[in-house]
């Protein structure tokens, strides 16, 4: 716990994992990426942003006492709500089966932001696992973070829903950069093909450049991990999916290095 309690005076890197379509493996991928980042020495916080149908805790078999919803409802201590899976890995859980909470108003969002910011200072990397769709909370979380990661499968409906989310975020919220992760692909070639296609459509209609972050192949160890409520990078560290996650984690770690490097440059320039 010692590592966690060390307060990070600087803002961490914050990224949102969204998909548009549900059932593309968003929560599983987020949790595994969080473990992989923690293995790389980063202090990681996973925020369960699916305030209506939270399932990060279910995926990990956690006994949750306090949730984001409790913090909003009865001002529970936010830091007490964080469940530590490892010394460097915390989860901020939400409540399941409270659909009304998925429809938070602007005032609730402001409150949520003021609750989240001080907690995130204790971490180097914050990953928000949002709900599916393009509800107000999904959009809010996506504007709250620095990086927008879109997860999709090669299925055309997943592609269309991801595109819809990108369109709304760029048109109404002026987000410009989107990082794509292709999940459940047969191979890298298929991932590249889907990415190229979506990137072409986004460039053509929205004048946006989509960044390719990586791909995770179809792998039976993923579903085994879900069944056993354990992250697959722990259960099957040598599986294809786990290796792909490691590659993605390296890239995400690069964002942290990049952020501290740019801070240094700014600091040097300023000093």
């Amino acid at each position: 716990m010692a590592e966690i309690s060390r307060h990070n005076p600087r803002k961490p890197v914050m990224a949102c994992m969204s998909s548009g379509k549900g059932g593309v493996g968003k929560t599983s991928l987020t949790v595994n990426l969080a473990f992989a980042l923690a293995q790389r020495g980063l202090r990681v916080l996973v925020v369960d942003g699916d305030l209506g149908l939270a399932n990060v805790d279910v995926l990990l078999g956690l006994q949750v006492q306090t949730t984001i919803n409790d913090i909003l409802d009865r001002e529970a201590d936010p830091l007490e709500a964080v469940v530590y899976l490892e010394p460097r890995l915390g989860i901020l859980p939400a409540s399941s089966g409270v659909p009304d909470l998925a429809k938070l108003g602007p005032e609730d969002h402001r409150q949520l932001g003021s609750i989240l910011l001080p907690i995130t200072r204790h971490f180097d990397f914050v990953l928000v696992d949002t709900a599916a769709g393009i509800g107000s909370s999904v959009l809010w979380f996506n504007t709250f973070v620095d990086y927008n990661i879109l997860l999709l499968t090669p299925d055309p409906t997943a592609m269309t829903d991801a595109y819809a989310l990108i369109k709304v975020l760029s048109r109404d919220y002026h987000r410009q950069t989107f990082h794509l992760i292709l999940n459940q692909v047969k191979n890298e070639a298929e991932a590249r093909q889907v990415y190229d296609h979506l990137a072409r459509v986004a460039s053509h209609f929205l004048s946006l450049n989509l960044e390719y972050l990586g791909a995770v192949p179809q792998d039976t160890s993923v579903s085994k991990g879900v069944r056993h409520q354990k992250p697959f990078i722990k259960v099957a560290p040598h599986s294809k999916a786990a290796i792909a996650i490691s590659g993605l984690a390296e890239r995400l770690k690069g964002w942290v290095t990049q952020k501290s490097a740019s801070r240094k440059t700014v600091g040097e320039a300023g000093g």
Binding site: P156, T160, K167, V201
Partner: peptide, 24 residues
């Protein structure tokens, strides 16, 4: 509604159809 999914017919065709995109 501000948050409706607004994927136009052209966009949908391009997403589903692959290959050729209509002229911008």
């Amino acid at each position: 509604a501000q948050q409706t999914i607004e994927v136009t017919v052209d966009e949908r065709a391009a997403l589903y159809g692959g290959g050729i995109l209509p002229k911008k």
